[in-house]
């Protein structure tokens, strides 16, 4: 979805302003909504589905909402959409210790048992496809159609574009791709600088020459 969340390259938001000695949370409701998202998120659906929940916020509300206000709006939306309150789980909720073990173990997104042979090798020139899907994607607009170079292969990872929509994990090779700043932003950008971004194989095509 070409949504407001895809912010890369906009310059209309003014300077970055850091808050000195910022606390982890600014109020108790932020603590609670953070913990609800972390501890109850998996019961709602995959991470990619939950991210798309934020992307579906009305754009004017998105830019005016704080981070944890977005997390609240997303959980309200997805709890209602999944109907999970009407079909509570049969398993008892995780204990604090059980969930703490998940916090420290994490939920890896690689699927090495589904490893697919990567089409590209480090150093290959690739073009990010000009895709404009209506659902969730992690291909930002600012790299679409641009030419970069494979910097690193990360392995085989869950594909967000399908996983967000109940269409399966579709694991596929994930690459880090380097783009020259001038390729993305034109001649005003520094010729020295570059941008590195992680892109799945379905976002890329080979590019033999410019």
């Amino acid at each position: 979805m070409n949504g407001i969340h895809d912010l890369g390259g906009m310059t209309c938001f003014g300077p970055v302003e850091a808050e000195p000695d910022e606390p982890v949370f600014h109020s108790d409701w932020e603590r609670r909504v953070f913990a609800i998202n972390v501890a109850a998120g998996a019961a709602v659906g995959p991470l990619d589905y939950r991210r798309h929940g934020i992307e579906r916020m009305p754009p004017d509300i998105y830019v005016r909402s704080s981070y944890y206000e977005k997390w609240l709006a997303r959980m309200e939306l997805l709890v209602a959409e999944t109907g999970m309150l009407d079909h509570p789980p049969k398993q008892p909720a995780q204990s604090p210790d059980e969930f703490e073990s998940i916090v420290y173990a994490g939920r890896p997104a690689n699927r090495d048992d589904a490893r697919a042979a990567p089409h590209f090798a480090v150093g290959d020139r690739v073009r990010a496809l000009n895709l404009n899907p209506t659902g969730h994607t992690r291909l930002p607009r600012y790299v679409r159609g641009r030419v970069g170079q494979i910097h690193r292969l990360h392995g085989t990872h869950v594909f967000p574009d399908t996983n967000a929509h109940g269409q399966g994990e579709s694991p596929q090779p994930l690459y880090n791709v380097r783009f020259a700043a001038t390729e993305l932003w034109g001649p005003a950008a520094s010729a020295r600088d570059s941008l590195y971004i992680d892109l799945w194989e379905d976002y890329l095509e080979p590019c033999e020459s410019r």
Binding site: V24, F34, A43, P88, P96
Partner: peptide, 17 residues
């Protein structure tokens, strides 16, 4: 509805704070 417990939410806050 037993989807998550208050004690687990408390633990998450404590860990990240």
């Amino acid at each position: 509805r037993g989807i998550v417990t208050r004690e687990t939410l408390d633990r998450v806050v404590d860990l990240y704070e």
